[in-house]
């Protein structure tokens, strides 16, 4: 299968992503990659994805038309509405589209990120080992930028077989984290209040980080010295000088000098990424051992 696809409408910050550009932190490049890795893999399995790359959409969704050829497309992540030539389909799902078909993804009831994967290889130049868009460093994807109406994507042979999709049970508890780097720099009172306090996802969120509203005032008035910078990883919970918590995400700054109270575990980071502004959450500490058991039980 090969196809030429034109973006008809792109919501803000829709980007090309693959598994990520790993191994370049020492060069000042964060790995990028999908905000919801599980959903990205699920869409890939539905599509029989022929390459690691697909489209990450934000809440506004995206419309595309097949200009020539045909390609199987799989979709997953959050809960969006999807139509082909006006006819509604289920989410997640997949279909084979041919020249002239219009796929329209519009806002749905849950989630921040949805994925489109393709049963053919996306023909784009590899940049430092990945197609992922890193908008901070302006690398990858289409010239390092978000997708826009009028962009054309070419897909070439290289289809895989659609596979079974893992449907992990949806977790609904606290977001679990590992105490770490600067935990002991916070007072015992802050440590104990942080666990179980209410935080709210603020509208200030993107692929770089998610700002939280500290509704119980856990960090209010806490003055913390700035520190020598250390490398940063996705899921790190850093506390700014004014007490605002920010969870650093896939396009994070490569190093950081603000205190980090902990790091969200791999098994919960996808779920956290999909929490919409206004959602309330609490944090719960777990051991590294426990986090590893969750990774083994939850992922393919």
């Amino acid at each position: 299968m090969s196809a030429l696809v034109r973006i008809v409408r792109a919501g803000p910050l829709a980007t090309i992503q693959d598994a990520g550009r790993h191994g370049l932190l020492a060069h000042g490049i964060s790995a990028s990659g999908p905000m919801d890795q599980g959903a990205f893999r699920q869409a890939g399995a539905l599509a029989g994805a022929g390459s690691g790359a697909g489209i990450e959409m934000t809440r506004a969704g995206l419309d595309l038309v097949i200009e020539t050829g045909a390609v199987r497309i799989g979709w997953a992540g959050g809960a969006f509405a999807v139509r082909i030539n006006g006819a509604a389909l289920g989410w997640p799902g997949a279909a084979r589209l041919s020249a002239g078909d219009l796929l329209s993804v519009t806002p749905g009831s849950a989630g921040n990120y949805g994925y489109l994967r393709f049963g053919a290889r996306l023909d784009l130049p590899d940049v430092l080992g990945s197609l992922s868009t890193n908008m901070r460093a302006r690398l990858g994807g289409l010239e390092g930028r978000a997708l826009a109406a009028g962009d054309r994507l070419r897909f070439e042979d290289g289809a895989g077989e659609p596979g079974p999709i893992a449907t992990a049970p949806v977790e609904d508890g606290p977001i679990r984290f590992i105490r770490g780097l600067h935990w002991e720099r916070f007072s015992v009172q802050v440590q104990s209040q942080f666990v179980g306090a209410r935080f709210r996802i603020s509208p200030a969120m993107d692929r770089m980080g998610v700002r939280l509203a500290d509704e119980d005032g856990v960090f209010g008035g806490q003055s913390i010295l700035s520190l020598v910078s250390d490398p940063v990883l996705p899921g790190d919970i850093q506390i700014l000088g004014d007490g605002t918590p920010i969870v650093l995400m896939r396009d994070h700054q490569p190093t950081g000098g603000y205190p980090r109270i902990g790091t969200i575990i791999g098994a919960d980071l996808d779920r956290f990424a999909q929490m919409r502004p206004g959602s309330v959450l609490a944090f719960e500490p777990v051991s590294v051992d426990h986090a590893h058991r969750l990774l083994r039980s939850g992922q393919t």
Binding site: G180, L227, L233, A267
Partner: peptide
């Protein structure tokens, strides 16, 4: 010290 569940940080000073 662990930095999440996929990394360790070895720190030689503050």
């Amino acid at each position: 010290v662990p930095l999440g569940d996929c990394a360790l940080l070895v720190r030689f000073g503050d």
